[in-house]
Amino acid sequence: MSTKENPAAFRYAASHEWLNASGGSAVCGITDYAQRQLTDVVFIELPPVGKKVKAGDRAAVVESVKSVSDIYAPVSGEITEVNSRLADAPELVNSDPFGEGWLFKISLNDEGELQRLLTKEGYEKTIQGEKA
């Protein structure tokens, strides 16, 4: 699998989630770097629609190589939709992390929170730090 560019329009959390905001809501997923660290994802537990989360709360759980990892909400808000295709095709998270492998949509409580997320450049610096 070739490395996928982190989209410049997205915002990122240091815990490797991405967020693509438009209007008062946003689509969230995990980054290409994250899916490489996880390797093949076999199960995904997504939050119930309507669940209210705070930034940093656990929003989803994935399993890969018998390892269960938490995925965190990058911002506070209410879950409005989840990617139901992942129940049967969790591999989408690996093959298209920034596209078809999205995890959930969230309505934003406070758009100001977006300012606290990382830009593509900031996120890539964080990854460099982890690799070092």
Binding site: A13, S15, E17, G56, P74, R116
Partner: peptide, 9 residues
Amino acid sequence: APPLPAGLL
């Protein structure tokens, strides 16, 4: 103050 973003907590 309002909470910090998840990545900084």
